[in-house]
Simulated scan of single mutants.
Amino acid sequence: MDTLTHLPLTEIDPYALLRDRTALDPAALHQLQYSIATEGLRMPIEVWQLSTPRDGYTHGLISGLRRLTAARALGHQTIPAFLRTPASIPQAMAAMVTENEIRSPVSPWEKGLLIMATVEEGHFETPDAAVAALYKALPRQTRTRLRYFANVAEALDGLLSTPERLSTRQMDRIATALRSNMEDVIRATLFARRGEGLESQWSALLPLINERDEPETTPTRPGRPRRLLQLKQGLTIRREPCRNGWLLRFTGEEARKGALIDDIFDLIEDKFQRR
């Protein structure tokens, strides 16, 4: 039977595991602090004993990051904890994921990021293996969606602002676009808007995603339609749908030269209005 004990907060490593929650909501954390201060901690955290203490930590946190953070903010010296005995780190991570799903669901972005991180850290060989182990209680269709969310996190990590705020619907649409060979144009669009807010970035992605959702009206050659052209000379050309047709957006050092656009006009005129 797992043991209930009181541990010094200084001996618990909150990040001994890769965590599925990348940020704590300040309002929810404040509310939890008030609850603990007035009524005490209702549910102990879960930890396991590290085989080799490191940096002064003797135990690793499995679940209860918000409770541990709140207790530290309140100046508590110890905290009640269930001492678990997971057979492995992946098993401990699966327990963390299950606990968080019950108490406060994690965003689809954070789930995707965790899946990819566990593979990069060597806990699982493939994203599919990570999904199967961490989310084995979920239906197959839901696990498939999580695999697609992992693709989104892998492709766009570092480009989106506050991606944990993306809804499941938004993640689904981005994942579908990525599977339609739109990764290059999506990354280029976000790179041009790095540092902007999520709403602005999403607005920039919508034309691309909407283009993916609209069926082609005429057959095209393999590899078409082309949505992005990036040249070594410092020029990027991206096509975007508009109400009456298409827009070509030119960016980069070469795009600042007015002669470039004159040359393009000449080429189009020569092609469609031959003398």
Results as ranks from 00 to 15, higher is better:
A23N: 08
A23T: 14
L24V: 04
L24E: 15
D25R: 13
D25T: 13
P26C: 07
P26L: 04
A27M: 00
A28R: 15
A28E: 15
H30G: 02
L32S: 06
Y34K: 11
S35H: 08
S35V: 05
T38A: 03
E39L: 12
G40I: 08
G40V: 11
L41N: 04
P44A: 05
P44L: 04
I45A: 02
I45G: 01
E46G: 02
E46V: 08
V47Q: 02
V47K: 01
V47C: 01
V47A: 00
W48M: 00
Q49I: 04
Q49C: 01
L50S: 02
L50D: 07
S51H: 12
T52D: 00
P53V: 09
R54L: 07
G56Q: 13
Y57E: 09
Y57L: 06
Y57T: 09
T58Y: 10
T58V: 05
T58F: 09
T58P: 00
H59W: 13
G60I: 11
L61H: 12
L61F: 14
I62F: 05
I62V: 15
S63D: 15
S63V: 05
S63C: 03
S63G: 07
G64V: 12
L65D: 11
R66A: 15
R67V: 06
R67C: 09
L68G: 03
A70S: 12
A71E: 14
A71W: 09
L74D: 07
L74P: 04
H76W: 15
Q77H: 14
Q77P: 00
T78F: 05
I79G: 06
I79D: 07
P80T: 02
P80S: 06
P80H: 05
P80C: 02
P80E: 05
A81F: 04
F82M: 12
F82R: 13
F82Q: 14
L83Y: 10
L83S: 09
R84V: 05
R84H: 12
T85I: 05
T85Y: 09
T85A: 07
P86H: 03
A87H: 11
S88M: 09
S88T: 14
I89T: 14
I89C: 00
P90D: 10
M93V: 05
A95V: 10
M96Y: 01
V97I: 14
V97H: 06
V97C: 08
V97E: 10
T98Q: 03
E99V: 07
E99G: 04
N100D: 04
N100P: 02
I102A: 04
R103A: 01
R103D: 01
S104H: 15
P105H: 12
V106P: 01
S107P: 04
P108D: 12
W109F: 10
E110L: 04
E110H: 07
G112H: 11
L113Y: 15
I115S: 03
I115V: 15
M116I: 06
M116V: 01
T118K: 04
T118F: 03
V119W: 08
E120Q: 15
E121R: 12
G122C: 03
G122N: 07
H123W: 13
H123D: 08
F124L: 06
F124E: 11
E125S: 11
E125G: 09
E125D: 15
P127G: 03
A129H: 14
A130W: 15
A130L: 12
V131Q: 09
V131A: 13
A133C: 10
L134R: 00
L134N: 00
